[in-house]
Design a protein around this nucleic acid. Structure first.
Lengths: 198, 198
DNA sequence: TGTACATCAGTGAACGCGCGTTCACTGATGTAC
DNA sequence: TGTACATCAGTGAACGCGCGTTCACTGATGTAC
């Protein structure tokens, strides 16, 4: 054979890695098959040797993205006691770095308003990713002994997602920074304050 | 003249009203000029007698959308004392009805991930809309005597936007309902609980 | 060792379709004289 | 009052472009004999 045994697999992985950035940066419609192949140093016709269709690529890429960001978030919290772990996660998620780098950031923020127009398979992968995010927070909340950890996890997730969504949507830089820092302060305060009376 | 004096103006308004729904339902790329004109009972060529370009339509439509939802939200809070007004607004925003009807709902939720790819003019209109939403909440928070009303308003806005974004993105119905209700409970609790200690 | 054939990742021209935009034209009505 | 012309919202064919997808082909290497 012209190529090594693992050559095709390597190309496949390379395409996924490039697509993982492009999908978050440019959205499902902005990710153009020919551009993707060009970025990998190939021509567009070869795409269909790797993926059945563009939709199949998108779905596989989304799974890859959730896996990647999940590992990264786990690394941020690794070794910390639960409450500090949550603080670290929240700071990481609500950082200007996260806002400024959609291509390596949370897919929920990057893709949300395109979701109603995606395929069933793509949406299933998305649901699983969201559930995992919530569970990741709920676990630490429970370990920290906070009450109703599952509800709290959802509330925190909503705040974080909303803040980064807004911070990225807005084009005024000061406004964007303020959205992040206000929300960050608020979530930390909630985690460290006594539970509300009822 | 063939047409009444106000005929063109009426057609223009009609196009804006249809576009206001379509933009939130289908996104900037999904709003197709020919479809819009057809919905208004016209043919696509006539579009350019009303708008300089598709982008001009989008920008004008976004302003129209923020004005409409703003009036509707004010109506929800009208006549209520500040804290109850906030409760009413939050319940309205986090309702399944809002989630299920993007075409008449908040443009921030409907459009956010398309924003980085929009024109400068469009984004300016968006910024103004976001600032108005935050101010609407901050005003009531201040009237209710809550501390740091501006920060609180941002935190509430982040939570609300994030919750509806997630509830709409997810395709599992139970999960979606739970996202809305968890977040709703959390925001109400925060508004009615004593301020956090620090 | 040499020859014919199979394999298969990748190539690049071509197709079909959707969409924004342009433009010459229509046709009902108003206006000038 | 009648005739010629201007107006202008709207029509619909056409253009150009981008993009997903198909498909006959390439060419380097492995295999059979």
């Amino acid at each position: 054979m012209r190529y090594t045994d693992t050559h095709k697999e390597e190309t496949h992985k390379k395409l996924l890695a490039i697509a993982a950035g492009a999908l978050r940066q440019k959205g499902p419609e902005g990710l153009v098959v020919a551009d993707l192949m060009k970025s990998a140093g190939l021509t567009h016709g070869g795409f269909y040797a790797h993926f059945k269709s563009k939709d199949a690529l998108l779905t596989e890429t989304l799974g890859e993205i959730f896996a990647r960001v999940g590992r990264r978030w786990d690394r941020v919290m690794d070794g910390l006691p639960p409450l500090e772990a949550l603080d670290a996660y929240i700071d990481f998620y609500l950082s200007p770095q996260h806002r400024d780098h959609p291509e390596s950031g949370c897919p929920v923020v990057a893709l949300n308003s395109d979701l109603p127009r995606q395929s069933r398979a793509f949406r299933k992968a998305f649901d699983a990713g969201v559930a995992a995010m919530r569970a990741r927070i709920a676990q630490r909340a429970e370990e920290a002994g906070l009450s109703t950890p599952d509800d709290l996890a959802q509330a925190i997730l909503s705040s974080m997602v909303g803040a980064v969504v807004l911070a990225r949507s807005v084009c005024d830089a000061a406004m964007s920074d303020d959205i992040l820092s206000s929300t960050r302060r608020d979530i930390h305060a909630r985690l460290h304050a006594p539970a509300p009376s009822r």
